[in-house]
Design a protein around this nucleic acid. Structure first.
Lengths: 353, 353
DNA sequence: TTGTAGGCGTTATCAG
DNA sequence: CTGATAACGCCTACAA
């Protein structure tokens, strides 16, 4: 690979002049200027990002740390971030943490040595991002947090309006006539899971419905969790007629469990998801879900980061993107709407607690 | 961030000595050695990858170029590559091409300036990878091609056995008694699409079945394509009783089209996919598919690359991973099956799972 | 307007 | 075995 010195020789100018025309850092007169450009063209020269970064004390790389690219929600976020980054000349270094915060720390520490232009992070469980981000910020490197927030996070963030999304979804179930609603939440130490539960509870409270604790099941954000917890919910008496799942993977597990139990969705039980993944429209029945745009989460985060780099020093921003309720076939009114199974109805007193 | 000079000062040794203990490039005696290590620990020092790369003329970054992380098959490949890379101290720079070969060229040219340890590429449509890889190879940088191969590719590659996978899948359909088989292929300039069609044809030929050209439809590897081409196939007379789809996304589109047409799968028409994506088990009916492990494709590619870097200079390797036929509910014998009788024996015990 | 030279943080070479 | 010192390729004062 040619270097600047060779380009200078080819164009018959000095090294500094080449740099000047490449970076527009000084007006170079026409005869030389084009000679340089021609030489660059001819040699297919591209400046070493390494040397440039070393000298400038910052590179065009953006570190992106996510739990797991294999988890269907995250690729969209990554893609959104990459599109914005790429079009501005930045590149992404992708790191998976598997929700392991010690792996996250390794990435956080190492990424610093690339002098990245910034960091976009979807925190792992029990993330220690807050303390580590501090050292980035001291170095003038932006860090934006996406989708969920670690403990005590006060920096820039881009999240969905989980609370409102969950509230609206739950409202919809209530309006259909459901009164025995259950929810299967993601890990409640994650802010997004907690907020969704918050929205669910608010809607329940608004409807003046009592919510006994066994109707709230916490699990991991995956199919297995949804499956296991649904089996528990289905054994409850009275059985819930609707389940609000913390995300689509949980909803998927719920769907499978309901089928296994010999029940029908939505006739016997309604299921509502969150995320509106692509798979939501191909399940059987297709899944009603709270739609949040992962892509937009990604583009917004990247733009925020680039603004910071351009010198935006305003106070921390917390951008919240609204959700949309996407109704499909997994929700319906409860069976025989005002439950006529009187024996079941009597039991309801038992959860008076 | 502390640099080596400061560590040297802290430990009361010279800069060179610090480098020596960090890289094991010379035996440093015990009193100093531990002092250095302690200083490193204390300062949380990590060497600048930029400076190191500049000096060593190579970094610990691996460029990974893929069509689109949003496409459900690719994240697994990326994850496989990342896992192997990470555990060996390498990091991934992720680039999406959108199957646009001019975007691919941009990435190829720019990645070189990071002096990457190697490149893992899933080529775009009409990829010009072959010529560009040449310049990488001259610089001693390995390039391995995954999933599909560009024109005239003669370097390292890791692919699935598309031909055999398609052949086995088609054989299965034939053994169920289907005689009017159609296929919807991906873009035939992509080697994987072409090989799958090859396997399909070989099975048909083996069964001495005529295959008229309108029973072979070519399209893009997505749902829309599968949907549109299925509608065409369903209008043919006689209508095919089984469709072998070039991948699961096409199969998904086919499923939707069949349903729209008021036909039932698998009673009226069988559908076979390829890839065995996660979504295959949640569709209605669940999708029979040729399973290939994207994750394994990724790990294998990364390992191959790292071997090269360790000095393996043997001739180009073409690693081919076997597939597995994963049977679910989207295939069944054809309607009015004329073969309850003789030849339907399970003579092929093959490798079906 | 153009050229020169110093230095970013490392590694590697070569004296001591 | 240890410690200077010269690159690596680039940018940028500063000098011409």
């Amino acid at each position: 690979m040619a270097n600047m010195q060779e380009i200078a020789k080819m164009a018959g100018v000095s090294l500094g002049t080449v740099s000047h025309v490449l970076n527009n850092t000084a007006k170079v007169r026409e005869p030389k200027r084009t000679r340089v450009l021609e030489a660059v063209q001819l040699a297919g020269y591209q400046p070493s990002q390494l040397a440039r970064g070393l000298r400038r004390d910052t590179t065009n790389m953006i570190g992106m740390i996510i739990p797991d690219i294999t988890n269907p929600f995250f690729p969209a976020v990554v893609r959104g971030a990459e599109d914005v980054a790429f079009s501005h000349g930045y590149r992404l270094i992708l790191c998976n943490t598997d929700n392991d915060h010690s792996k996250e720390i390794i990435h956080l520490n190492e990424l610093r040595t690339y002098l990245p232009a910034g960091l976009i992070v979807i925190p792992s469980n029990f993330s220690d991002l807050t303390t580590h981000a501090e050292s980035y910020r001291r170095a003038g490197t932006g860090v934006v947090c996406v989708d969920r927030l670690p403990k005590n996070w006060s920096g820039d963030s881009v999240t969905a309006n989980n609370e409102a999304g969950a509230y609206n979804a739950t409202r919809h179930l209530l309006q259909l006539g459901h009164t025995r609603l259950a929810t299967i939440t993601g890990p409640l130490h994650l802010t997004n899971a907690k907020e969704r539960l918050g929205g669910f509870k608010r809607a329940m409270k608004g409807a003046k419905l009592h919510l006994s604790p066994e109707y709230i099941q916490e699990t991991t954000f995956d199919k297995q969790g949804g499956h296991a917890k649904t089996l528990i919910l289905l054994r409850l008496i009275p059985r819930p007629t609707a389940i609000f799942a913390g995300n689509d993977m949980i909803a998927l597990g719920a769907l499978l469990a309901v089928r296994e139990a010999g029940l029908r969705c939505p006739e016997d039980i309604s299921i509502m998801g969150f995320d509106d993944l692509d798979l939501a429209e191909t399940t059987n029945p297709s899944l009603s879900s709270v739609s949040q745009s992962g892509y937009q989460l990604g583009t917004t985060a990247a733009r925020l980061l680039l603004d910071r780099r351009e010198g935006d020093t305003s106070p921390a921003k917390h951008i919240v993107l609204e959700t949309l309720l996407n109704l499909r076939n997994s929700v319906a009114p409860p069976p025989e709407a005002p439950q006529d199974n009187s024996s079941m109805k009597r039991r309801r007193g038992s959860k008076q607690k």
